[in-house]
Design a binder for these strands. Structure first.
Lengths: 336, 336
DNA sequence: ATGAAAGCGCTAACAT
DNA sequence: ATGTTAGCGCTTTCAT
């Protein structure tokens, strides 16, 4: 455990000088700097993070708040964000939080014991204390979920994404379009349901609540459950809009289990464009969220906020796009 | 930012006493303890992690070393491990590392600046300095990959797992069995290839190197690539053994694209039993790694090592199991 | 059972 | 340009 004093002693200088070269200050004699650098190299000295953190009262760390049961889309997103954060010189901490009050309290405790530079939300926290602490201690935050509590967000327009998914189905001639939505815990889910209803009205199809099922989660198992539920209610749908790709994949699984072919018998569309969407059989038609851009821009915005450059803390709504693959097709002429 | 001094002042006691109750010492007057607890509750005081870390010279943190491009199996595994670690009172840090020397150096730097209690390897580090530092600074480690450098491992027997996968195929009557292996970077991949060869010999089928392709990574794209490569070489295989489930899924994707049906025309088996394996169309036959047990036991072993209880640091080989689903079947009678 | 004092390794005024 | 000094917030002897 070689410390800054050891280096100073060996170099015959004071710890301050060593500190200056380590922290990249320029008011140091080039020759001395060189010697110190050599010594650091030789000894393998690395500054103690805790000590630096304490005196500087910051940790150079950014936390990513993410659901305990993060889905594939979130996993891809956090990988991208993590990479950018590192390139900006931050460490990344992961705060996994469950959708319950006690887990949110744990998250708040964690928040208080770290001296975070910033935080990126891939998950909505309900507890107001969280946001209060954030603003009280001036910790910058960016969300990829929703513009809450004054936190700037980098997102897509979920309502419009749902409308675009629906219009694809409607343009294909489908009239009986069911939806598998997720739990209303997440606001993106709520907005996608709004879009579903809106597209139905706009298309003159009308909303029928029997055509909408709310699955408990946003995973494949929930998609299977949602599809089973829908089939119990009626079998006259020719297309299904799933609130996320994972829900869509689960729905296809159930359909196939009942020998209902996708897209020949029923078309299925999702939202997100997770990585397996392009590998599944059939490949999934979906609305793509610009994953890379969301990750890049949210990390960049946070970095700007932290370093105080450019305070255009407004966030952004990024464009999504329709990816037509194999799970949707023209409707059958004679519907049952 | 309420500190321990603030609490002490309010309570009319010294910081030492507050520290004693916070750290759970029992030599404190019950009434004083109660008052302090009340004050802590009221003020929302949480000890500064960095300060505690510095004076105690430990961080109560465990790092999980994981490939930058972690696959689905590793993602599931780290979620489980993370949960156990938290239940033992540790924070979890993630060290994402790429398979190159510079990324490993970054990982070593990070290792030095944190005062880790322990480390769990979901990824093999090649750099010897890593292991040297570990033993020099007495940081405990557990691996879920391989028993290297004296680090105890919780794994399955990859060679035997491959043999069991192959025997399933052989028992089904397959004679021309190809394999898609991954890059030899990971030793589990190497062992699975050994098992493939061994089963072939034991079954009297003989190993033909034209039946083995090494994909660059362990993801679906690599599986597709591997399958394309195999089809270029010959089309007489009736079964394919993929080194991981993701490879298997990619292989199925390519097969389906060529209108070759799984399992009617070709059987496919993988290893791991990742979560989508049971949802894919067709559902994947595979060898299940006991994910929960691996996660649980590796976290538990590390905790024991750290807290110095029971030094059965031997690691363990856990039983795997064959999960027969839809992607394998009896061979066609008349092979082409 | 409790307080006083020392010190963990570092950075940042403040001198020089 | 460099050394000296004073903490950062906490835990832990060492007294009492």
């Amino acid at each position: 455990m070689v410390s800054i004093k050891d280096i100073a002693k060996r170099a015959g200088m004071s710890p301050s000088t060593v500190s200056r070269v380590v922290t990249g200050k320029n008011n140091v004699n080039p020759k001395k700097r060189e010697l110190i650098l050599k010594l650091i190299e030789e000894t393998g000295y690395v500054p103690n993070k805790a000590a630096r953190e304490m005196v500087m009262r910051r940790s150079f760390a950014v936390a990513i708040v993410i659901p305990d049961m993060f889905n594939i889309f979130q996993r891809q997103l956090f990988s991208i964000i993590e990479r950018y954060l590192i390139s900006f010189g931050y460490h990344t901490l992961f705060f996994f939080v469950k959708p319950d009050a006690s887990s949110e309290k744990d998250c708040i405790t964690r928040l208080k014991e770290e001296r975070l530079d910033g935080i990126i939300m891939l998950h909505e926290i309900k507890d107001r204390e969280f946001y209060q602490y954030l603003s009280a201690s001036k910790i910058h935050a960016v969300s990829t979920i929703l513009n809450t509590a004054g936190i700037p967000a980098i997102t897509i327009d979920d309502r419009q994404a749902a409308i675009d998914a629906m219009n694809h189905l409607i343009n294909l001639g489908h009239k009986n379009i069911d939806m598998i939505g997720g739990a209303s815990f997440f606001s993106f889910g709520v907005k996608r349901i709004e879009g579903y209803k809106e597209a139905l009205e706009a298309g003159g199809l009308g909303f029928d609540e029997m055509r909408l099922v709310n699955a408990p989660l946003y995973n494949m198992e929930s998609g299977m459950y949602g599809m089973r539920e829908l089939m119990l209610r009626s079998r006259d749908f020719t297309a299904v809009f799933a609130g996320t790709d994972e829900l869509a994949l689960g729905a296809i699984r159930t359909l196939e289990d009942h020998r209902i072919r996708v897209p020949d018998d029923v078309s299925v569309i999702g939202i997100d464009d997770i990585d397996i969407a392009g590998y599944f059989c059939p490949r999934l038609t979906t609305i793509r969220q610009p994953l890379i851009e969301i990750g890049e821009q949210s990390a960049l915005l946070l970095h700007r906020l932290i370093s105080g450059q450019g305070v255009q803390s407004a966030g952004a709504v990024l464009p999504h796009s329709l990816i037509i693959r194999e799970s949707t097709s023209l409707t059958r002429r004679g519907q049952p």
